[in-house]
Structure formats: structure tokens, C-alpha cells
Amino acid sequence: MAGDTLLAVILGLIDFLLFLSGALSEGGLQPQPWFVVIPVDALMVAPLAFRRKSPLWSAYAILLISVAHTTLQLGISGVAALAMSLYTIVVYVGRKQGLIYLGALIVLNTVQMLTDQSSTWFGETLFTLFGLALCWTLGEFVGARRAYDEEVEARLHLLETERDQATRIAVAEERGRIARELHDVVAHSVSVMVVQADGASLALPTNPDLAGRALQTISETGRGALGELRRLLDVLRNDDGDGEPRVPQPDASALAELTERMRAAGVPVELEVDDDLADLPAGVSLGLYRIVQESLTNTLKHAGTGARAEVRVRRNGETVEVLVLDDGAGRAKQLEGASAHAGSSKKTPRLAVAGGNGLIGMRERANVYGGTLEVGPAPAGGWQVRAVLPVRLAP
């Protein structure tokens, strides 16, 4: 309102100066006394201060006061205020209200010209029409520019919202990845430690050496799990790269070490791995390792005592196949027996088998790289996990 108030003051001063110049030139005689001129001039320009805040109220107040101002011929502020009111309505309200106000102005000017019966009515009419057309055109241009600016601002706000949403999605995906990694680490390591602790407690009275080796395995597994947990939790911190270097993520080359740990935990594992896995993408290699780790952990937890496992990793051209089999009598055969007792089909759809976080994590790891995963009872008994991952990731 500061700029509009200044504009109103300037127009009022112009009318006041015209009044003074007329008074001086005519020896102090004026057709209207000062106590009429000054209040009407002030009322004429006062609504201009509110033309942006209340465009319609200001415009119609100016229209009403202009009748007295023009009739008394008190200066130019009436014409200027009417022109600015038309411009303001077109810019800030819209074309419909602008047309109504323009019609009111034309009617008012027509009535005034018929009443005055001036000899210069034709020139005044052309001047009025030209002025109204100019104000309307200027209002259309500024209104379109203002609408364009609002649209750009709205799009920028939408882009910022989408960027924030994309950031939240990325954070959620990263947290999901970390949760899967933590599940893999904790489930595997704790399962090994529990089995070794039970074995140590049973062997301690009769075979202290075997109990000692079990306790050593518990210690090594726990230290390894703590190291992996510390490294994964470091991802959640905003480190600047200082401090101790982080241990690389495991990959296909660490499968031999993984199977050795499982053998030490009491599950005989037979490993067959092709030699040409060194050039696998880092994500695919990590996913392969985690799928094998989760599968062997499930064997340790559910297959029962005396179960054996086989891990086969073969590369077939542009894909790598992972197959983990066990001959356990635990959860696998229970599910198979329940399925047969319920009268289901002979071949159970493996992808329909429900699972906890471990199976969900394996499926997500396979899907994220465009691979497939089949989990379910093996045809010859036991449990099997089969995953096929692409060697080359799609761009």
C-alpha cells in the first residue's frame, strides 16, 4: 500500500496545485470554494491506497466520487483514478468484473457528455475510448504476466515437493537396504553362536577341547558380526571420510569362508563355484553372497540335526545361477507334509511360499537386479533356494 498511497498523494497534490494556479490567475476567484474542492479531491484519491487490497471496493468508490469530481471540474485526478481502477480490476480480479466496470464507465461518460452538451464531445469521446482501451490492454498484459509468474511459482513449489518426496523415498529405500543387511548379519551370526553355545554346553563335561573350539567359534563369529554391524551403522552417519577405513562388502569370493563357518557350526556344506565370477557387478556379487548366507542360515535354524547342504553357483552366459539344497527334516518336510495332507497339487509354486524378513530380503535382492527367486520344498525332500541373476545390469 505504500506505493499506492504515494500515488494518491501525488494526484491529490496535482489537483491542489491546479486549484491554486486557477485561484491566482483569476484573482482569487474560483467557481468552487476551497472547503469543497479539498475534501472532494481527498475523497477522490483516497481509495487508490486500497486498490490492490480491495480492488472492487476501491474501484466502485472511485466511480461514485468521480461523478461529483467531474461535475465540479476539480482536476485530472478523477480521470486518472478511473483509468487505474479499470486496470486494477483487469489485473487482480478478472475480465468479467473488468467488463462490468468498463460498461459502467461508458454509461457514466455518455450521461455526462449528454448533460454537458459540449461542442467538443466527439474529441472527448475518442480520447475516453482510447484511454479505456489502453488501460484494458495494459491490464491484460500485466495480468497475463502475473498469471504466468504464479504458474511458474506453483510449478517450482511442485518440483520442490517432488524433490523432497524423492529424497524421502531414497532414504526409505536405503533404510530398507540397511535393514536387510542387518537382518542377514544378525540372523546368520546369532544362529551360529546359538548352535555353538548349545554344542559347547553339551560337550563341556565330556570333551572340553571340543567345547573350547566351539567357544572360539562363538568369539570369532561375534567379533565378525560386530564389525559388520559397525560398518553398516556408519552408513547412517554423516561422516566426512575420516577415521578407520571400512571393510569392503562381501562378494562371491567370500563364499568359501562362509561355508567354512557353517561347517564349524555343525552343518556339512558342499560348495561348487565356477571360477569366472570375478567380473560380476558389485551389487550382483553381494546379492549372491547374501542369498547363500540367508539360505544356509535357514538350514542351520530349521533343517534339524544331521542335515547337509549343497551350494552350487554356476555361470551360464549372461546369467549366474545360485542353488542351495538341504536334506533337512525340519521346516521343509513339515511344509511338504502339510501341503500333501491338504490335498494340494503335487508341485507347490515356490514363489507363493510365505516367509519372514529373510525370504523377503532374498526376493528383493533378486528383483532389484532383474533376477528371479524360487523358494520351496525340494522334489527329493528337504528345502531348496534357486536364484538366477543377470551378469550384466540393464542401463
Rank of each mutant, 00 (worst) to 15 (best):
T88F: 05
D234S: 13
I38D: 03
R290D: 13
R261M: 14
I10K: 07
A387Y: 01
W57F: 11
V322A: 00
P33A: 12
G224T: 05
V171F: 15
G3C: 14
R52N: 04
V91L: 05
V40T: 01
D251K: 07
D198K: 15
I89W: 00
M84N: 01
V273P: 00
V40I: 10
A42R: 00
R51H: 10
R237V: 12
G356A: 10
A332L: 04
M1V: 11
I100D: 05
T161R: 14
D184S: 13
S345I: 09
G28K: 06
D326N: 07
R231A: 11
W34L: 13
R230C: 15
R363D: 12
G283P: 00
S189K: 02
Y148D: 14
R52K: 11
V142P: 02
V194F: 07
A264V: 11
V91W: 00
L43E: 02
Y101E: 03
L389S: 04
G376T: 03
A380N: 09
T88H: 02
A49Y: 02
A307F: 02
Q165P: 09
L105F: 14
D274Q: 08
Y148M: 15
L351V: 14
L7G: 07
A80Y: 01
R177S: 10
I62T: 03
A342I: 07
G283T: 10
L296W: 03
R155E: 13
